[in-house]
């Protein structure tokens, strides 16, 4: 039997230490949550009184009480529409290639490593790429087209990664069943893989778009800070977007513009939250389906 003297459990000390650590761990989580709460409270507190129809339906103005987000909202809609139009086919196509067609070789590995690294490139660097490539060399000017192409490259890794996950989750038996019926690879992809992966793909696209809506830095590099009182009519028009307009208002010294900025942030956050809610909704429905 053990000799009782050779161990000194220090139980009391260890328990106290454990409780102290637990308090520290918990307060860390609380700091994160509290940060979010204070941030939201500050914005609501500052911005709620500025929420008005003018904020949505007016063009920007030198007078805070008349200034609105109209140009920015339309610019954002244009930018998102074009970005989605470029990103979705390319991103989903790349994901299909990597999951369904690619063989294990150096090119595939290069593409994968490359996508992982692209996800870590600062967004302002994408802005510089767009500025040099689309604005200057391809002479698109500071247009919404140049902005959308730049934004597409920026969110492409997100769409590719999410689509790959969704495609990976399609059971192998589905494919085998389709092949056994004599379908070609492309037919299998088109009529079996894509339909069952589509909720996951869609979720990824929504998340990528909500990232794109909030991105400011690359758009500034492309569009600069413009004072626009018109709506883009075609892809080569100049444009501005919500976060740039907000940034513009924050940067002004007058107190009223700060409030206006907070109002604009509320609008932006509402759009983002509804997009995220949609993504969560899709994810849940999808998960339920796959259980059944």
């Amino acid at each position: 039997m053990r000799s009782p003297s050779s161990f000194n459990h220090h139980l009391g000390r260890r328990k106290i230490l454990g409780s102290i650590a637990l308090v520290m761990f918990m307060s860390s989580v609380v700091v994160g949550i509290l940060g979010l709460v204070v941030l939201l409270a500050q914005i609501l507190f500052q911005g709620l009184e500025w929420l008005s129809p003018e904020l949505i339906f007016n063009f920007p103005s030198r007078h805070p009480e008349q200034a609105g987000l109209k140009a920015a909202i339309f610019g954002t809609v244009w930018l998102m529409g074009l970005t989605a139009a470029f990103t979705v086919p390319v991103g989903v196509g790349a994901a299909i290639y990597l999951e369904e067609y690619a063989s294990e070789n150096w090119l595939t590995r290069l593409i994968e490593v490359n996508i992982a690294n692209l996800a870590g490139v600062p967004s302002i660097v994408y802005g510089l790429l767009g500025l040099a490539l689309f604005v200057q060399w391809l002479s698109m000017g500071r247009s919404v087209l140049a902005g959308a192409l730049t934004m597409s490259l920026l969110v492409l890794p997100i769409v590719i990664l999410a689509s790959r996950e969704a495609i990976k989750a399609v059971p192998e038996t589905y494919r085998q069943a389709a092949f056994a019926l004599g379908a070609t690879k492309w037919e299998v992809v088109r009529s079996v893989v894509l339909p069952s992966a589509s909720p996951g793909v869609l979720t990824g696209i929504i998340l990528a778009m909500s990232r794109a809506i909030g991105e400011t830095a690359p758009v500034i590099a492309i569009s600069a800070l413009v004072y626009l009182t018109f709506i883009p009519q075609n892809p080569l028009d100049r444009f501005t977007v919500l976060p740039i307009q907000i940034f513009n208002w924050i940067a002004r010294p007058q107190e009223d513009f700060r409030g206006l900025a907070a109002g604009g942030i509320i609008v932006l956050l509402i759009i983002l939250l509804s997009m995220n809610a949609l993504a969560v909704f899709l994810r849940n429905r999808y998960q339920k389906q796959s259980v059944e």
Binding site: V90, Y97, A102, I111, N117, L133, T184, W186
Partner: peptide, 27 residues
């Protein structure tokens, strides 16, 4: 058709490589 589709998808995947090259070259 199958062949063409495959090359099309490969082209999509290569966009990511071109992005990296584009970033380096333009910078």
């Amino acid at each position: 058709e199958g062949g063409a589709v495959k090359w099309l998808f490969l082209a999509c995947a290569l966009v990511s490589i071109l992005t990296t090259v584009g970033i380096l070259v333009s910078l």
